[in-house]
């Protein structure tokens, strides 16, 4: 049996993989400074644990697996952040009205939806503003699912959450976004 063991070549890491890792990170954290930090940490962690590299995978796969752990660490950090802006409730959470729409959050009619429904820069920037208004964790999951269009299973695996957990986050993100778009775009 021939064994083609991959060897690490850290001198070439940046030229060969920095953009790939950076792109991977931006797709998940949507912040280029943070993504840059994650990539840097990935290379450092790679150097530190280079002796553990068994050569069974390619260098790139190995570096991505380190970056994946950095992304999950980041998610856990924003998930546990104390005093983070909690998403606004849209439904009664207890009493006989539990699960019903809160009066002030009931969807209003969008009279001019058709004329407002034209894709342009202005619309795109309003969407971005509304997503950025969400608590970080909601924005991250919403972006991964809706903007990057990742499979549910992939997101659950990458962030170590259950699918019902994911749908609750998506639901809260979307109801909050709907309200933001209603106030600032459709009925503005």
């Amino acid at each position: 049996m021939t064994q083609n063991k991959t060897l690490l070549n850290p001198d070439k890491w940046i030229d060969s993989y920095a953009d790939y890792l950076f792109n991977y990170a931006v797709a998940r954290v949507n912040n280029s400074d943070l993504a840059k930090d994650l990539v840097q940490e990935t290379f450092f962690a790679g150097l530190k644990s280079a002796k553990n590299f068994q050569g069974k995978s390619t260098e790139r796969t190995w570096l991505i697996s380190i970056l994946k752990r950095k992304v999950i660490d980041h998610y856990r950090k924003i998930n546990s952040k104390k005093g983070q802006a909690e998403v606004r409730m849209n439904f009664y959470t207890d009493g006989e009205n539990e699960g019903n729409w809160l009066e002030e959050r009931v969807p209003q009619s969008w009279d001019n939806a058709s004329e407002k429904n034209i894709e342009n820069e202005e619309l795109r920037s309003q969407i971005e503003i509304c997503i950025d208004n969400l608590p970080e964790k909601y924005a991250m999951v919403f972006r991964m699912k809706t903007i990057q269009e990742f499979e549910t299973e992939e997101i659950c695996k990458e962030l170590d959450i259950t699918s019902s957990n994911l749908w609750v986050i998506i639901h809260r993100a979307r109801t909050q976004l709907r309200k933001c778009m209603e106030d600032n775009w459709f009925n503005n």
Binding site: N90, F91, E98, G99, N100, V168, H171
Partner: peptide
């Protein structure tokens, strides 16, 4: 189901 569940 409730409205919360329906919209989910």
């Amino acid at each position: 189901i409730t409205c919360d569940e329906a919209t989910t």
